[in-house]
Computed example of a mutant assay.
Amino acid sequence: MLFAAAATVAAANGGGASAGSGAPARTEPRTPGLRSPDAGFARDMAVHHQQAVEMSFIVRDRTQDEAVRTLAYDIANTQANQRGMLLGWLDLWGLPKVVADEPPMAWMRAASGGGDDRAGHDGHDGHGGRTGDPASGALMPGMATKEELERLGAASGRDAEVLFLQLMTDHHKGGVAMAEGCAQQCGTPVEKALAQGMVDAQRSELTLMADMLKQRGAAPRG
């Protein structure tokens, strides 16, 4: 806190000195707009992460396999923390966590040349994939449906492990696509860095989950 205050004072003093010497004054970072990629990604990924946390807690109680339980714990812990950061940024920016008329992934369509983010509601994410069927609970790329979550909750042992790994593989693939979108399109440096970190970490976990599925005589879906 003291460091932050000192940095603020130093920046203010530095800005005054620059103005006196004729150098351009430093400008404050622009707060993201309501429908910017920064805000859209924060809202959508917070929802996406919440389902990963939910699936991780489900499988934790459906198997005694230490490797799967450890992976589930790591995913739940990491994504819960990241979700808190995303929601915290929305609070900091004074933006809502939910926009009633905003379809999932609108920020990616708009940033990729889809025009106004109210247009193109054909269920596609603008990158060749589907955003999901809201009625089934699959709101964004890779998200599990309500039926799949129910199946996971009813499974046990190896069946639960395989289904969790398959669902989480799909989930990570969708999450990587979303995070790549923010890494390319978001304007807030710290959010771009977080998004790139998600890409790197989830790609590593995708490799791990492929190996874990192979050990169980299974493979990723699709």
Rank of each mutant, 00 (worst) to 15 (best):
L152Q: 01
V47N: 06
M105T: 02
H171S: 02
R83A: 08
Q82W: 00
A195C: 10
G16I: 15
F3I: 12
E161D: 10
L167N: 03
L213C: 04
L34W: 06
G217K: 02
H172S: 05
M85Q: 13
E180C: 08
S204F: 07
S36M: 09
M198P: 02
G88A: 10
G113H: 14
E66C: 09
R216Q: 07
A72P: 05
Q50R: 14
A111Q: 12
H124T: 06
R109G: 10
A111Y: 12
A183F: 03
R118N: 11
M85K: 10
A25T: 00
Q64D: 15
T27H: 04
A111T: 15
F3K: 13
N81I: 07
R221K: 14
P189A: 09
D74Q: 06
Q166G: 08
L152S: 05
Q51A: 01
G16P: 00
E161P: 00
L163N: 00
R62F: 06
G157N: 04
A119Q: 13
M212E: 11
A80D: 09
M168R: 01
I58H: 00
L152H: 07
G153S: 13
A76K: 09
V190T: 12
M55L: 15
K97P: 03
A218C: 07
W89Q: 08
P32V: 08
A138C: 08
F3P: 06
M143Q: 02
A195R: 01
Q215T: 12
A4Q: 14
Q185Y: 15
D74A: 08
Q51G: 06
E102W: 09
A25Q: 08
W93A: 08
E191D: 08
T78G: 01
R69H: 12
P103R: 02
M212Q: 12
G33Q: 13
P24H: 02
M85T: 11
A5I: 13
P134V: 03
A111M: 12
D101S: 10
M212R: 08
G157S: 06
A25S: 06
D200S: 00
K192D: 02
G22V: 04
P32G: 09
G157T: 05
G88Y: 09
P103K: 04
D74S: 07
K173S: 10
V53M: 11
Q166E: 12
P24N: 00
M1F: 13
P103Q: 07
N13F: 13
E148V: 02
V99I: 14
H49K: 01
A80V: 05
G15F: 00
L152A: 00
W107T: 07
